[in-house]
Design a protein around this nucleic acid. Structure first.
Length: 627
DNA sequence: ATAGGGTTAG
């Protein structure tokens, strides 16, 4: 009798069960005393699922004839926690079919499942169900709804930059039935099951539909505005949703507004806001947030730490990034990635590699981001041996199907001179986004294979991937090097007319270079003069073309333009002097050299270096000591 | 029960 009271108390106050062991003891008691009470079994399921014991929960659940809401809800949540998303949805449908009315505890985890599945239609129909049941004012449910719509919008934006090859394929693959079995499906990789993958394909076509209807951030806003009571999670959710979808000003405005609700920004708020200032390269505002975080004791938070590292790195303050990183009490794979990427993005390749090794030594498992962050270090150091070693590592851990990782490999192999390997990897990727297209195009451009560049660029456009600023740099570089004047003009015009991209310095430089080498010096001069604020470098390259074509008159005009902003530009003096020399105008050469001596302008010697047998000797021009 | 940080091309 006493035992019975004890286990009843335990069941009524499930929180006092503090270990899996105690839960199993309770289970034994129930089996002894009331083995078939659905209420007690459901409570036990709830306890088991709180410990994330899916197997134990399912064993009990499967034995129930008509499971109560509590049992359904517990299993659904446990499914989601274990990444068994389709199963969680299937069980919800089964629950509806059985006539069991869901309570408001079911929806938050179910909506999370929809968000992770990126299944818009499903999410919206569950939203409908929530409204019909009158649960659209529940705080937790609304928070989960806003999170879901924000995630949909993000997934949709990502899909937009993919090739539509994937979308076309998925149009034939829409029949995914939700079977109601409660099996745990074999996992194909860390987080997804076979069914999950079917789902992911189906969503792509769902997403196309969103295109016609506009932003899902409107849905987030709608839910937010209708809420009667909002807690800090509500605010953080809507702020993060806006921040993640590029609505930076909206997000920052909401941060200011949350004070009116008597809610103060917490560590979640800050970690959503910091990436905005990183994107804006606003060191001042970023530091303000850093100060706020320190005053509120958030600076130990690994989330805040990672975003601070990222912010400082974006603002080219590697020293500050390192300091933030070093005082963090704990490092997870994301904070390691922040510092690795921070170093690499600022050209500190060796430091980046050192941190990568330290991460491995600290037994932190690298994730795909780790590899896509470190690979540019190999690419820029032209360290093929290292890149290959990492590639092997990538294959062994099964990250070679990741788009970011593959793109970085394409770039690395191309930069190391292995364009065929780069192409081989590119061809084996199942989706290409604009960056991966640009990487392979740039690879061929670097290798001077303009015909490949042009055909790949066309292929990219045909697959519905919008080229951006960098893509045009790549294609124009190739045209310029190959002397393809007509194609270059076509792309230059297409960039502005078809894509609305304002040509920048690099594009003008390609065109000017091309015109200059073709001897169309006046045309080049005209083009450069039409620029908003021509940089010195671009004038210098035209000046160099003037030297090649011995056009002294234009050279003088160009040099004048340079001296206007930089009267002591060494390169300009030397190029102009060389132009005079090429035209055999020796008096002018002497005059210039006299001027240079008077102004104290000296040519600094050029040098280059090369790796030979693990040593890297430098060669200063005119140096014959190595011979 | 619900919310946050890091990635690839110049």
């Amino acid at each position: 009798m006493a035992a019975q009271t004890i286990f009843r108390t335990l069941l009524d106050r499930p929180n006092i069960i503090s270990s899996k062991y105690q839960a199993k003891q309770l289970h034994a008691q129930i089996l002894k005393l009331e083995p078939s009470s659905p209420i007690h079994l459901s409570r036990l399921i709830s306890i088991y699922s709180n410990f994330n014991l899916l197997h134990e929960s399912l064993l009990l659940f499967n034995a129930l004839h008509s499971p109560p809401v509590l049992a359904y809800k517990s299993i659904i949540r446990c499914y989601v926690a274990n990444g068994l998303l389709v199963q969680s949805v299937a069980l919800f449908l089964q629950m509806r079919a059985s006539g069991t009315k869901p309570d408001h505890h079911v929806f938050p985890s179910l909506l999370k499942s929809c968000a992770l599945l990126s299944d818009l239609k499903l999410g919206e129909s569950i939203h409908g169900c929530i409204i019909r049941l009158g649960m659209d004012f529940d705080l937790y449910t609304c928070n989960a709804l806003m999170n879901m719509y924000g995630k949909f919008q993000k997934a949709f934006a990502a899909m937009d930059s993919f090739s539509n090859k994937f979308r076309i394929e998925s149009a034939h693959d829409q029949k995914v039935t939700l079977n109601q079995t409660r099996y745990i499906f074999p996992k194909t990789n860390a987080n997804s099951t076979i069914l999950d993958q079917c789902y992911r394909k189906r969503n792509c076509s769902d997403m196309v539909e969103v295109d016609r209807r506009g932003s899902l951030m409107d849905s987030v806003k709608k839910v937010f505005e209708k809420m009667l009571k909002r807690d800090v999670v509500s605010w953080n959710t809507v702020i993060a949703g806006n921040a993640e979808n590029g609505k930076y000003e909206e997000a920052l405005m909401l941060v200011r507004e949350m004070g009116n609700d008597n809610l103060k920004p917490d560590s979640f708020t800050l970690s959503s806001v910091l990436p905005i200032f990183a994107e804006y390269v606003d060191l001042h505002k970023g530091k303000e947030i850093h100060g706020y975080a320190m005053r509120h004791g958030f600076d130990n938070d690994v989330f805040i730490g990672s975003s601070l590292v990222g912010m400082y790195a974006k603002c080219a303050r590697v020293e500050d990034a390192l300091q933030v990183f070093n005082i963090l009490p704990q490092h997870d794979s994301i904070s390691w990635n922040s510092i690795i990427a921070g170093c690499v993005q600022n050209g500190l390749f060796d430091e980046g590699l050192r941190f990568f090794h330290q991460m491995l030594k600290a037994k932190v498992k690298p994730v795909p981001v780790s590899f896509s962050s470190i690979m540019p270090a190999c690419a820029n150091l032209i360290a093929l041996h290292l890149g290959k070693q990492l590639h092997g590592f990538i294959i062994r851990v099964g990250y070679d199907d990741n788009m970011f990782v593959s793109s970085s490999l394409v770039d690395m192999y191309a930069k190391c001179g292995y364009i065929k390997v780069a192409r081989w990897i590119f061809d084996r990727m199942d989706v290409h986004d604009m960056v991966s297209w640009t990487a392979i195009i740039m690879g061929y451009a670097l290798h001077g294979q303009a015909c490949h560049v042009v055909s790949l660029f066309e292929q990219m456009e045909m697959e519905g991937v919008r080229p951006n600023y960098v893509s045009f740099v790549a294609v124009l570089t190739a045209c310029s090097h190959a002397g393809m004047m007509n194609e270059a003009w076509r792309y230059f015009n297409s960039m502005t007319q078809n894509y609305g991209i304002v040509p920048g310095l690099e594009h003008y430089a390609c065109m000017a270079d091309l015109l200059g080498r073709a001897g169309k010096l006046d045309e080049a001069f005209e083009l450069i003069s039409s620029m908003h604020r021509p940089a010195e470098g671009i004038w210098l390259s035209l000046l160099s073309a003037c030297r090649v074509h011995k056009n002294v008159d234009l050279a003088e005009k160009v040099a004048e333009n340079i001296f206007e902003v930089d009267p002591e530009n060494t390169g300009a003096y030397i190029l102009l002097s060389n132009t005079y020399a090429a035209a055999q105008r020796w008096k002018d050469v002497a005059r210039l050299q006299y001027l240079m001596r008077n102004k104290g302008i000296k040519k600094s010697p050029a040098f280059s270096w090369i790796e030979v047998k693990n040593k890297t000797p430098a060669f200063v021009s005119g140096d014959k000591s190595h011979l």
